[in-house]
Design a protein around this nucleic acid. Structure first.
Length: 271
DNA sequence: ATGCGGACCTGTTAGC
DNA sequence: TGCTAACAGGTCCGCA
């Protein structure tokens, strides 16, 4: 579920409840996530004061005094703040128990997520070191994309979803950005001209920004950081709309597969 | 270096 | 109603 807007919404949701709080304990009920939760993580976090959580791509960073907890929500992870005596539900794998009435609870049915620990600069962590720029970073622009896409034969959609190119453009927003830019998702990355590439960069930045504004797209079981199920729905033009008319020209939206991911596009508007 | 396919998991929904 | 298959928002890894 979580794409960048959901991750950012989660960060914003939990931030006021954890910034400046002391970690009383960390309860790990299931350590088999994408990678095993480090055994030393509870001991490292216990007794330290948490700073404001940060985000890098879809990774959440929880800086403590002696290191940083690095979290990824994977496909199905979510965080919520619950009062201490709330009994854990199915797939509630980890609690960060805080001073005061709340603990931060991590739930992840598919266990594609992760919780890691580093004492060093988290941005140099192997998982983060090779990430591309944030979509809101001014270096992320048409020229930047053109340079990287030079002679690349992969589709523009797979290219824009590559986290070493730019972070945070997941399947939903790749579809939406390409629609807004009028580019066929299957087009070779190296065959997108300068003008259209600029449009794509702008579209990606825009669509992600708007989704964050909207509070994140809510699909399936996403739960906002405040514990309220998000009911806001970002208005999607193509994703999940196979067979429905394109809002621009009325042509039926098509679905195809690119890189094992469902891809939605308007065959008339996107070339 | 690039590109592809498979892998990790469980839950929900569509179809018979 | 019940069973099975397809599909789901992410990434990493190994191989060609």
């Amino acid at each position: 579920m979580p794409e960048l807007p959901e991750v950012e919404t989660t960060r914003r949701g939990v931030a006021p409840h954890i910034s400046g709080r002391t970690v009383r304990d960390v309860v790990v009920r299931e350590r088999r996530l994408r990678w095993e939760v480090p055994r030393r993580l509870p001991a490292e976090l216990r007794g330290t004061v948490l700073a404001t959580p940060q985000r890098r791509g879809k990774y959440l960073l929880f800086p403590a005094e002696n290191g940083t907890a690095i979290m990824h929500l994977g496909m199905s992870g979510s965080l919520r703040m619950v009062i201490h005596d709330t009994p854990p539900a199915k797939h509630d794998h980890i609690d960060i128990v805080l001073d005061g009435p709340y603990r931060m609870r991590y739930n992840d049915p598919r266990r594609f997520g992760a919780l890691l620990w580093t004492r060093a600069d988290p941005l140099r962590h192997p998982r983060l070191a090779r990430l591309g720029p944030e979509p809101f970073d001014p270096v992320f622009c048409g020229d930047y994309l053109r340079r990287l896409a030079h002679r690349r034969k992969t589709s523009i959609k797979q290219f824009i979803m590559d986290a070493s190119v730019v972070v945070g453009v997941g399947n939903i927003y790749a579809n939406e950005a390409l629609y807004r830019a009028g580019i066929n998702p299957a087009r070779g990355a190296g065959r997108v001209g300068a003008e259209r590439m600029s449009r794509l960069a702008r579209a990606a930045t825009e669509v992600l920004g708007e989704a964050i504004e909207a509070g994140g797209t809510t699909l399936r079981n996403f739960v906002g950081g405040d514990g309220e199920p998000g009911y806001f729905q970002f208005d999607l033009d193509v994703y999940g709309r196979e067979g429905q008319p394109c809002s621009g020209c009325g042509t039926a939206i098509r679905r195809r597969w690119l890189g094992q991911r469902a891809t939605f596009f308007c065959p008339a508007c996107q070339r």
